[in-house]
Computed example of a mutant assay.
Amino acid sequence: MSPTPTELQPKVVVFGLGGTIAMTSGTGDGVSPTLSAHDLVDAVPGLTPTGIGIKVVDFRRRPGASLTFADIAALAAAATRELAAGATGIVVTQGTDTIEETAYLLDLLHHRPEPLVVTGAMRNPTLAGADGPANLLAAIQTAASPAARDQGCLVVLADEIHAARRVAKTHSTNGATFRSPDTGPIGYVLEGAVHLLTRLPYRLTIPTPDQAERPRVGLYTVSLDDTPTLLDAVGEHCDGLVIAGFGVGHVPEPLVAPLTTLAARIPVILASRTPAGPTLTRTYGFPGSERDLLTRGLIPAGWLHPYKARILLHALLAAQTKPQDIATAFSVAGNRAEPSSWPWPTPSWTGDRAEVPAGHA
Rank of each mutant, 00 (worst) to 15 (best):
S36D: 11
L40F: 06
D39W: 07
F15K: 01
A22M: 03
E7S: 02
M23K: 05
A43L: 07
T34I: 10
A43N: 11
V13W: 06
T34Y: 06
G19T: 02
A22C: 01
A37C: 13
D42K: 12
L40S: 05
V31D: 10
V31T: 13
V12S: 07
S25R: 08
P33I: 07
D42G: 12
T24Y: 08
T24A: 10
D29Y: 13
L17G: 00
H38T: 15
P10V: 07
D42W: 06
F15G: 01
V14Q: 08
F15E: 04
S32Y: 14
E7H: 03
V12N: 09
P33N: 10
G26C: 10
S36N: 11
V13C: 08
F15P: 10
P10T: 00
G30Q: 11
Q9W: 10
V31N: 06
H38S: 15
D29S: 14
A37V: 11
G26N: 15
P10S: 03
A43W: 06
I21K: 00
Q9K: 12
M23P: 12
E7F: 03
L40Q: 13
G16N: 03
V31F: 05
A37S: 11
K11L: 15
L8V: 01
S32F: 14
G30P: 08
H38D: 15
P33D: 09
K11V: 11
P33L: 07
T20V: 01
D29F: 13
